[in-house]
Write a protein that binds this DNA or RNA. Sequence first.
DNA 1: TTTTAATCGGACAAATATATCCGAATAAAA
DNA 2: TTTTATTCGGATATATTTGTCCGATTAAAA
Lengths: 144, 144
Amino acid sequence: MFSKACEYAIRATIYIARQSQEGLRASLVDISHEIDSPVAFTSKILQQLVKAGIIFSTRGQTGGFFMENSKIESKSVAEIVSAIDGDSIYTHCGLGLKECSGAEPCPVHEKFVEIREKLRSTLETTTISAMASSLKNGLTYLKR
Amino acid sequence: MFSKACEYAIRATIYIARQSQEGLRASLVDISHEIDSPVAFTSKILQQLVKAGIIFSTRGQTGGFFMENSKIESKSVAEIVSAIDGDSIYTHCGLGLKECSGAEPCPVHEKFVEIREKLRSTLETTTISAMASSLKNGLTYLKR
DNA sequence: TTTTAATCGGACAAATATATCCGAATAAAA
DNA sequence: TTTTATTCGGATATATTTGTCCGATTAAAA
């Protein structure tokens, strides 16, 4: 469904949000440890999230990654996904046809439109905040 | 969603079914041309489908691929998908956790279970026969 | 001012998925 | 029997994704 990079991105963002809610910055090694991801690869992904304006970073000693409280509330998983994987998850034809559409559909088009729309609305309505909360309450996990 | 191999597999199977309904065998080059796929790669995929018992093949002149009528009616897209991509599409955690489950869920677990179940039931209830029919009636396409 | 601890950026490496090549095996047609 | 047209199987090649290395940059602490 998502690329590995995108999976790491979502897990990292939830962790960063959770730390930010406590007024803390998260360092790269800290993040990688908490979400169980390869450090250098995670670094690249965090840079993409910074460029997309989803998280912020500061360099130097005491530096690290953090998220504004307003963004924790307003940003959805969908925005992380489109920053890392683009919108192919919503647009790519189920059978790989380049010009598949309602006018010239592949044999699974109608059914896939339905599933993709359900996925889209799920991702768009799931906020970082909600996921950080379930993590805080010990109801969900970011590794294992 | 599906691997490219799986996309080709589904398209090829629909075409083979359609030809079989007319009492014809489909050759590899014919199939690749009709579904617009790389010939040698498609060959490997068709071999997997033969081993999985979804399609049949005969060698030699006048040889080719075909499908029994009973299987055209009974087989679903789900069976092609599991022959090529396995069941990871139903089981893989949305955030890539190895041990994600209802007991120790990732933050999107509940929502993803729902989407995956919808996908599963869609794939299981979509028969090769139904897709071959829409193709026959000119309502759907296998290339472009 | 120097050291230290952090992110950034570019090049490189490994693993996986996608795709190609070609000879062997098969079976019908010539 | 030979030729022809097909699938099968193994080795190889290419592209993409995933992952690593390391020096440059930054900024706080010593």
